[in-house]
Amino acid sequence: MTRGSDRVRSQPQVDVLFDHADRRYQPRDHLAVRYEISGLGQDQVRAVEHSVAWYTEGKGEEDLGVHHFQRITDEALIPPATMVGSFATDLPASPLSYEGVIVKVRWCVRVRIFLAAGRDFVSEHVFDVGMIPPAQRLAGRTAADAEA
């Protein structure tokens, strides 16, 4: 089982199991995920959302693309009735995971728990699509310009 980040104080915890233990996928691969929620304490859950998305990191503003999204509000399918969930999707042909110099593209599975108190808790689990080697900055080839 591949786990997310360490538990923070009394926060909920989401353990995610990918069908590829190394979390490496190829474009158009089938992705299957099983997750388990724990540590909710007295918090009531209104809804659970799970999604498969890519986002950009680096120097630029963050861009987000959602490939798979599902919001579950059926009380029989969310805690406390059930603490586990699963979903599957076929990955698209692009974009591929990319570790650039100022532009990075990452894929992730997100499980977001909406609590009755109004706040929500999100657990993010990064995986790779494709096998692109990291890019490196070439000396003397940088330019910046103000646009507005």
């Binding site: 120097k59 100022i102 890019a135 070439l138 940088t142 330019a143 910046a144 310009d145 646009e147």
Partner: peptide, 11 residues
């Protein structure tokens, strides 16, 4: 300001 930075990473 909205700024744009460009870097050549492979040549």
């Amino acid at each position: 300001d909205t700024r744009t930075e460009r870097v050549v990473v492979w040549s």
